Simulated assay, not measured.
Amino acid sequence: MIRLSGVGKTYDDGTVAVQHLDLEVRRGELVCLVGPSGCGKSTTLKMINRMIEPSAGTIEIDGQDVTGRDPVELRRGIGYVIQEVGLFPHQKVITNVMTVPLLYGEPKQKARERARELLELVGLDPATYGDRYPHQLSGGQQQRVGVARALAAHPPVLLMDEPFGAVDPLVRLRLQDEFLRLQDELGVTVVFVTHDIDEAVRLGDRVAVFATGGRLAQYDTPARLLGRPADDFVADFVGSTTGLRRLQVIPLDPAHVEPLDGVRAGDLGAAIDVDSTLGEALTVLLREDRGMVGVKQGAQFVGVLTPNGIHRALRAALAEMAEAGPPS
């Protein structure tokens, strides 16, 4: 879907922002670019839609070199969401979301209907929020409007530059959950820039870790990134809490679920779904202060998970990574 081959960016003063970057994003994939300030992750994002022109290499979307396309036309087909949102302050929410369809020449009524659909999709009732102005919304609500506006033209590609960085942690988690639901529902291809490794491993199908100087240090799944850092830089960037982070990206394996063995469902308290992560299971165990948590598939209990089961699942996941060979 998106392929960067030998892409580099060197500014006139000799500053190297990105060096010889090879990166491929598959259709429907959510890829997070993460790294310290000044590592080239935002520059890379902006080169994809030609807000910044690369100094070297090629960037392709669906096999077509973006440098051969009109920049304005290219950007109209790519959704773009930034931390500052960039809503038009003098326009109502519904009008903000209608902007891109109207630019494409859609009739006003059709654009309005599309905007209402998208507001509902991002969890904002158009009857309640459509006639408000941006300053009348919370930061999290403004971000939702920004996402809706970016999706208004049915873009196959969505670029996001630290979109949730300006909101408080609880709102940020809710926005992340909502966005994961949206991305799964719409199947759009997403390149997402963040400085937060926790956000990257929570959202990304794959994560690209950039080092200072614009070097791609590792490009891998969250589980392998946490379990098999490619070098000392990645290990240091991932940090000392990798064990806890691993739990958030390792799915529950039914092999580690123990039978009910006479345990009554009513004795289990809260339950987790069979497709939960180990981290979600541990959170429920700690919150409920119980020795086990029920595991459900749909409405049916299929077993229980204990702290020992979580430990065995983590060890099995790490062993599987070791057998898979060295990191990318």
Rank of each mutant, 00 (worst) to 15 (best):
L180N: 12
T194I: 04
F192V: 09
V190R: 09
L225V: 02
L203F: 02
L203G: 02
D205H: 14
P222R: 02
V190Q: 06
V190Y: 01
Q218S: 05
Q183S: 12
V207L: 05
G204T: 01
G187F: 10
A223E: 15
R206C: 00
F192R: 03
D196S: 04
R215L: 13
D205M: 00
V190G: 03
T221Y: 10
E199Y: 00
L226E: 05
L182Q: 11
T194R: 06
G214R: 06
D220E: 14
V191L: 08
L180Q: 14
V201M: 07
D196M: 01
A208K: 08
V190W: 01
F210Y: 09
L216S: 08
T212C: 03
Q218L: 08
A223L: 10
T221I: 10
A223W: 01
T189K: 15
L180Y: 12
L226F: 03
R181M: 07
A223K: 12
G187A: 07
R206W: 02
A223R: 14
L226V: 11
L216H: 10
A208G: 11
F210S: 13
Y219H: 15
D196F: 03
T221V: 10
V190S: 04
V193Q: 09
D198E: 10
L225A: 08
V188N: 03
R181S: 14
R181A: 14
Q183W: 08
Q183T: 10
L225G: 05
A200T: 01
D198I: 00
V209E: 12
E199C: 00
A208P: 06
E185T: 13
G204E: 01
I197W: 01
L203Q: 05
A211H: 05
E199L: 03
L180P: 12
R224W: 11
I197F: 03
T189E: 09
R215G: 00
D184I: 00
D205N: 10
V190P: 04
A211M: 05
